[in-house]
Design a binder for these strands. Structure first.
Lengths: 348, 348
DNA sequence: TTGTATGCGTTATCAA
DNA sequence: TTGATAACGCATACAA
């Protein structure tokens, strides 16, 4: 019962125009091989008849699909709670693809095995022209799979160290980390805590190293705990960070939800934000300016990254060589949740 | 440069098996017409050769695509800030579709015209087997379009009063509104404010009416302002609601972001939550339990709704009649942001 | 410039 | 039970 009310084919158009189907095809695709007169006539008749190309037939003949594949993997239990990021990325990707008549083919996998099965299916069936790989982990099996199938265009969103040579768009986490740490250091903070995302995630790992380096560079004491992006994870980690003495005077969270939860529990524990404790989050969202005090964040143009990814993918599909591209850099969005360390409370 | 390393076709399988291509097709599709012996042989050889059906060819021959189309419309300026809802819905939809080898074909439109163009394209090209319509507005042109193209299966997520007879899955907003109002009334609240979503949205309108009715029923004073789902919108509306005398003792927000922002500004204004003012939000998210006090919400199983929508769509594709289906009901998730009205502050 | 013929990979019809 | 063969709708090499 599929769609397709429109049973008008190029043969119908050809008959109505008094020319052959190939002439119609040339005319409709703006290719040489027909006179301007017949082209115009064919175009008019095609429009009058309401002709539109059949997608499947076009795909079969051209052997391309005008679709980019994205698999979102959920864990068994719950949604990967990076939704605001993912949605913005998809929006940027989709908006840019729209300019080129490309679509996003989206699938949800429960578990890594299911994700691999989908990717293998796409490689074999040719249901997408290219793949966007997100949320890469260390030694990710997807990298191996796509290196073994070099004919499938792909772009990975991760650090080049994780992609095994696949084309990559990387986020500039390193310099952002340096910026964040020196910002807090400039405010007088000498003990900084961090609540990172799951250790298996590639970007958690990358940030781990960058934070250690930046802190060492500036002589800042740095302690990191890993959590799972959820409120309870953020609360637990915050409690632990604040229970040691001397406690950190600033905490950076890998996402907004944990930052919000951390700020909340810190207040419940009697800390004033930012008087006693400065709070920073990674990645911006509506949430960050909905809460009081507004959260200082390291933000970036995620929608823009999605658009850039689309452009890169189209290039790769075109056969252009892409190795490593950069996202737009992060910028520090200073708001009310961070401030200088008051001398008298610093060692409380 | 499209994918398709696997140039193994059914002809290759046929040759290797020593049978004809049609026999192979029957065998692979579990259809009668071949003996069990040859079926088994063909299946084995197909697997050994790594054969997978070509998607485009299959679509063309079967004239179906195994894809459900979803268009997300963004306004000119910014993302529609219902992202957490949308992402969960897509996750449910996609997870269920996965069981039936269906995918989501996702496109992002900027503006309603672009969205209409995409839908028309899909109807003509047959690039999807069915459509899911979300975020319906009053007198939505999409309804008209799909009524004029009854051969395209469709499910709308809205109140039946908005769908013009198209198959619908409706959310049970009416009873949820009644529940919310009576919950607050039972706590002693006699003046309730509300910050709704944009008036053009169908569900805003539905809730408007339901709130008015429920408030009148219980003799509760009710005042509603409409905002745009953003923090600043929530803040502005909250200020206005609290600036009149006597002020409401409870405010219900149509989304979590506005509730968070409203709670924040109310505190800045000196109100204790929930001592002086009770706050409730519509739809649950991580945000609601990340903030202190945790937000009392009217929640629902959005992922489940997505799954249900998938099941309905597959039914509709199968030619089954679907008129009006219900989402799972909302449930009141009582947390710390709501409480009784202290007599002495009630008229402050 | 135009038309004919064939390929794309499956599914489905119809003889054998 | 089998195996040619014709759709499916479009693109294109080749011949006219």
């Amino acid at each position: 019962m599929a769609g397709q009310k429109n049973k008008v084919t190029i043969f119908d158009v050809a008959k109505a125009s008094g020319v052959s189907s190939s002439a119609v095809s040339y005319a409709l695709n703006n290719k040489p091989g027909v006179s301007e007169a017949t082209r115009a006539k064919v175009l008019k008749i095609a429009r009058d008849l309401g002709w539109k190309p059949n997608g499947a037939a076009q795909s079969l003949a051209r052997s391309n699909t005008s679709r980019i594949g994205v698999v979102l993997a959920r864990e068994e239990t719950q949604l990967l709670s990076v939704e605001p990021y993912m949605m913005e990325l998809l929006a940027g990707l989709g908006t840019e693809l729209e300019q080129h008549d490309y679509s996003i083919l989206l699938r949800f996998a429960v578990g890594r095995d299911a994700e691999m099965a989908i990717l293998k299916d796409w490689i074999a069936t040719g249901n997408v022209d290219a793949l966007l790989l997100v949320n890469l982990e260390m030694d990710d099996p997807r990298v191996e799979l796509l290196k073994n199938n070099p004919e499938m265009p792909v772009l990975a969103l991760c650090d080049p160290s994780l992609s095994g040579g696949l084309p990559v768009m990387r986020s500039l986490d390193m310099q952002a980390v340096t910026r964040a740490v020196s910002y807090l250091h400039d405010l007088g903070h000498e003990r900084i805590g961090r609540v990172g995302g799951p250790e298996s995630f590639g970007h958690s790992y990358i940030r781990d190293a960058a934070f250690s380096d930046a802190a060492a560079e500036l002589g800042v004491r740095y302690r990191c705990l890993h959590a799972d992006y959820t409120p309870s994870g953020g609360i637990e980690a915050t409690k632990r960070l604040l229970s040691v003495s001397p406690r950190p005077t600033a905490i950076i969270y890998d996402n907004d939800v944990m930052a919000l939860a951390g700020m909340g529990i810190a207040r419940e524990m009697g800390f004033d934000i930012p008087g006693d404790l400065s709070i920073m989050a990674w990645d911006d969202s509506f949430m960050c300016t909905a809460v009081f005090p507004h959260l200082t964040v390291m933000g970036r143009d995620i929608v823009g990254s999605g658009r850039r990814a689309a452009q890169l993918l189209l290039k790769i599909i075109d056969g252009e060589q892409v190795d490593v591209a950069d996202e737009a850099p992060y910028d520090l969005r200073e708001r009310a949740s961070t401030g200088p360390v008051p001398a008298e409370t610093a060692n409380r």
